[in-house]
Computed example of a mutant assay.
Amino acid sequence: MELRQLRYFIAIVDHGSLSRAAKVLHIVQPALTQQLQHLEEELGATLLHRSAQGMQATDAGKLFYEHAQAILKQVSDAKSAVTQSADKPSGTVALGIPQSVSGALAFPLLTAVRAAFPDIVFQLTEELTGNLTEQLKSGRLNLAILFDDGQLQNHFACTPLVEEEMMYITRADSQFACKRKSISLKKALQTPLILPSIQHGVRPGIEKVAREHGLEIEQVIDITSIAILKSALLADMGATILPAAPMLAEIERGELLAWPVSDVKLSRTVTLCASKNIPLTNAAMAVEKRVLDVTRQLCLQRVWPHTRNLMS
């Protein structure tokens, strides 16, 4: 198996066509077809099939695509580690960030990295926490922002960033709005709640605290997308329990209101993670430091609300 075969396969999947992939790769289509056949013979599996929509990956092809991307990413990182200067880092750095943190951290971080390191190709990926974990394990990501569930240290090198308070959030004029300055957990859980699905980093934490206090969520609407969750809140379908950061724009405009949960500690630890097994390039280490600097600044300036800085 050759690296070029991996690149060829990825190009076919990305472009959905042998002819388009051949054009992008600057090779003739028969040669591309031959390399694909050699790859499938070596693996003993069919990776692609023709459909009305073009060339599409089979189940085996989808799995191989993920591994191929990770392998090529690590090869690229290895080259960068040897050739780049510590004083002027360059190369590609991929950082994954959860949807519920993106609103607070993504743009300030992107701006800071581009200003400080113009030779770094900085790739920000917004995903669900579970997807980010798998991509970091496989090497497709250099770094990821994850939520510490007590198990992260078993798999990754971790740096806690902030502790983020969970808030009870409703539409400003909602029938579910709180009449006081805060709300009890029991009262909040009796409300129809719009929450991310169970595999999301927020939901297990809420359910764990509820169980510890002999409570359970009475009514829940599962919505994984932050954008759709906001729409459901604004339609007054229920309330949510989330950090304020992903709703900050709507809260500042007065469309949504947020209250603290008064009788229990309901929070999550936002953590910067890297692989224990794959070394960071100089560029990735430069971005890692910038994440810490930007996060610290956002907390000090209270731009990232309801957070406690965990960095020394």
Rank of each mutant, 00 (worst) to 15 (best):
C273W: 00
A286H: 02
V261C: 08
D263M: 09
M237I: 04
L248I: 09
A244W: 01
I221M: 15
L233F: 03
E218C: 11
K265C: 02
S225K: 13
V220E: 12
W259R: 07
V287A: 04
H213W: 05
N282I: 11
A227H: 10
W259E: 08
I228P: 05
I223G: 06
K230F: 13
H213E: 10
A245S: 15
E216H: 10
E252C: 04
A227C: 11
A244S: 14
T271H: 06
R253L: 14
M247G: 02
E216S: 09
T271A: 05
P260F: 03
L257Y: 06
E212H: 11
R253M: 15
L266F: 01
L256V: 09
A232I: 01
V270Q: 05
T271I: 09
N282Y: 13
G254N: 01
M247S: 08
A249Y: 11
T269P: 08
K276Q: 15
I223Q: 15
I221H: 05
I223A: 14
T240S: 10
L257S: 14
K230W: 09
A245W: 08
I241L: 15
I221L: 15
L257C: 14
L248R: 12
E216W: 07
Q219W: 10
V287D: 06
E255P: 07
P243Q: 14
A274Q: 07
I226N: 12
E216V: 01
L280K: 01
T281K: 00
A258D: 07
